[in-house]
Design a protein around this nucleic acid. Structure first.
Lengths: 143, 143
DNA sequence: ATATATAGTTGTATTATACAACTATATAAT
DNA sequence: ATTATATAGTTGTATAATACAACTATATAT
């Protein structure tokens, strides 16, 4: 796949990556045991603390109804718990349970292992730089 | 988002990227006018030449029935045409039409423009290196 | 006190997908 | 050669993730 210029290469490789990553997520070969949506939701709550459905929906760019169902599913599995906002009776807040933290940790470990192995041959500089550029990419890609 | 090490950062940023890229693809804000699946299919045929349904399915890691429908849809829009393999009557081969090439070109142009703007501030070295690392990532990520 | 706005849930429709059943053709086995 | 098996593709069906719409409960503004 001879790409004429770096940007073309980046576009090509990123779209390919997305196509395949989505496949992997839906397949048996997916990393870890949590659904991608569950992983992201747990991670978000774990890193940023308790949040309401609306907040989560905004940060994932999903409809509030979709996140409401995702959260209900995680709640049923006792990976998160719901509590109400004393200041606003409409709001449902969620936080990660002990069990949720365990599952998240285990899952993250598997994912990191995968990434460690993928980048095993990379130099420290390459890893560093790739991570930094990804951050910039994410910032620039999404207003 | 202080990530303790580069690999963790890479994992975090890539999962975030996928989540958002999938959203963008499904939204009005998507780049270009073609569905992501249509873009990938046209691009594949354009770059690698005529292919049968099975080949395409394998390369996208999708079920043959899924690709059969995608191809039928593009055929109906006259972006690709079907022809038969003289050596095997079961096979449907597809190739991109003039119209398909036009659409693909236009779409690619828009996508590249987007990527040009995103990476506008990057140095040539950064673009180069990022592209290279993405290639390696893709190779390593998917057996 | 009443009207309007917001947070969340649940119902419904759409879409992308995989798997299963089937048809047509090709290849292998006897 | 005939028959059995394998393969390519299509079409039917089920499932899952999603958005949007209708609704309920609560909050805020008039």
């Amino acid at each position: 796949m001879e790409k004429r210029n770096p940007v073309e290469r980046i576009e090509y490789e990123l779209t390919t990556f997305i196509r395949r990553a989505v496949y992997l997520d839906n397949s048996e070969k997916k990393i870890g045991n949590l659904e991608r949506s569950a992983y992201l939701l747990l991670r978000q709550l774990d890193e940023f603390g308790p949040a309401r459905v609306k907040e989560l929906a905004e940060s994932f760019k999903l409809d509030i109804s979709t996140v409401s169902r995702q959260a209900a599913a995680l709640e049923a599995k006792e990976l998160i718990i719901r509590f109400s906002d004393p200041a606003d009776g409409r709001v449902s807040l969620f936080t990660v349970t002990k069990l949720g933290k365990q599952k998240l940790k285990a899952d993250k470990k598997m994912r990191l292992k995968r990434f460690e192995s993928i980048t095993g041959e990379w130099t420290a500089d390459e890893k560093e730089s790739f991570g930094e550029l990804l951050i910039r990419l994410n910032e620039a890609f999404f207003d």
